[in-house]
Simulated assay, not measured.
Amino acid sequence: MPRMNKVWSWAFGAGALLALCAPSAFAADCKVGISIKQLDAPYFAELMEAAKKEAKAKGCEVLTADAQGKVMKQISDIEDMLSRNIDLLVMDPAGPDGLVQVTREAASDGVKTVVVDSSINKAAKYVTVVQSNNKKNGELVGRWIVNKMGDKPLRIALISGAKGNPVGRVRRESVLSGIAQAQKEKYGKKNYTIVGHGWGNWTQQGGLNAMEDILTANKNVNLLVSENDSMALGARRAIKAQGLTDQITIAAAADGQKQALQLIKEGKYGVTGLNAPDLIAKKGVDIGLKAIHGQLPKNFPKTSYTPPVAITKSNVDKYYNPNSAF
């Protein structure tokens, strides 16, 4: 059905009016495109699956695409979705700037865009960005580190995801800010040094490689700060291989991956921030479906957060799910 006819049918058809008032308001005539920047890490795979599950539960047809970390592929994928008359685009951008124009193309077609997980340039046309509160999560993680490690000088191995990624930048800056604030409050001065910084591309293998490089040059590391659990789990393998598990505390700014939570329960991994992909995906799809039916407040916020939490041994049982896919 051509898009204009579909819009008029929804706007004025009596059946559509009844559908909008019913609990399953989204079940009739909705098509959702889900474009995830990459699926080679468990977090992103779960983000995709959770978004698909939520959209299908609301009765929508679903189209999906894996951008494989490539902005141009993601643009092509989304343009294909637009040609197939989607109503809602749920997108985890492969880059903050490269997807701006395609969101404008979507808007000109009457398609609403909701960004999940990552951020996007504010020049883009989108309803909201749904993500964990990376700033507050990071600060909570940083404070936990100081409470755990006391006034000893922190010699940090820092592992980041991808160069230029705005979410990664906020995560690492917020953890370091939380450390500095807590140290100043408790001991009157900032007392940490980044002795090595590597890039792990969000994956376990990337984290392993980055940590191996850092430890080759810096054996005096006593704290690992990673921007996600996958890279920290990979880095932990390098730490174990060097016999440094008792020396190095492991902290991740975000995720709450099942494997990391199990290690937290066992006392083998310090802390991670709550960044549940299922919560983000569900919230993103729900907001998007309300948007395409005009059910959002006029001044709906451009950023929507899930609750900030530092997951540690003291509260891990609340968040650990052995049956989770992530």
Rank of each mutant, 00 (worst) to 15 (best):
residue 50 A to F: 02
residue 66 D to C: 06
residue 315 N to S: 13
residue 82 L to V: 09
residue 56 K to Y: 12
residue 231 M to D: 04
residue 76 S to Q: 15
residue 120 I to Y: 11
residue 258 K to Y: 01
residue 194 I to V: 15
residue 181 Q to L: 12
residue 164 G to Y: 05
residue 264 I to Q: 07
residue 64 T to Y: 07
residue 167 V to L: 05
residue 131 Q to M: 13
residue 26 F to G: 11
residue 39 L to E: 00
residue 239 I to F: 11
residue 150 G to R: 08
residue 72 M to I: 12
residue 302 K to E: 06
residue 227 E to R: 02
residue 7 V to D: 14
residue 88 L to H: 00
residue 322 P to S: 11
residue 288 G to M: 07
residue 167 V to C: 03
residue 98 G to D: 06
residue 190 K to S: 14
residue 289 L to Y: 00
residue 233 L to G: 03
residue 44 F to W: 07
residue 257 Q to V: 04
residue 8 W to P: 00
residue 289 L to P: 03
residue 269 Y to F: 15
residue 326 F to D: 09
residue 253 A to H: 04
residue 143 R to T: 11
residue 206 G to H: 03
residue 9 S to P: 11
residue 133 N to E: 09
residue 256 G to R: 13
residue 177 S to N: 10
residue 217 A to L: 13
residue 13 G to F: 12
residue 225 V to F: 07
residue 116 V to H: 11
residue 152 K to V: 08
residue 41 A to L: 04
residue 310 A to L: 05
residue 165 N to M: 00
residue 205 Q to I: 05
residue 141 V to P: 01
residue 230 S to G: 04
residue 55 A to I: 08
residue 109 D to W: 09
residue 321 N to H: 09
residue 278 D to Q: 15
residue 28 A to E: 10
residue 58 K to C: 15
residue 326 F to R: 10
residue 60 C to M: 15
residue 322 P to T: 09
residue 68 Q to E: 14
residue 11 A to V: 13
residue 182 A to K: 12
residue 47 L to C: 04
residue 239 I to Y: 10
residue 61 E to G: 15
residue 253 A to V: 07
residue 202 W to R: 03
residue 25 A to K: 10
residue 162 A to K: 08
residue 248 I to G: 08
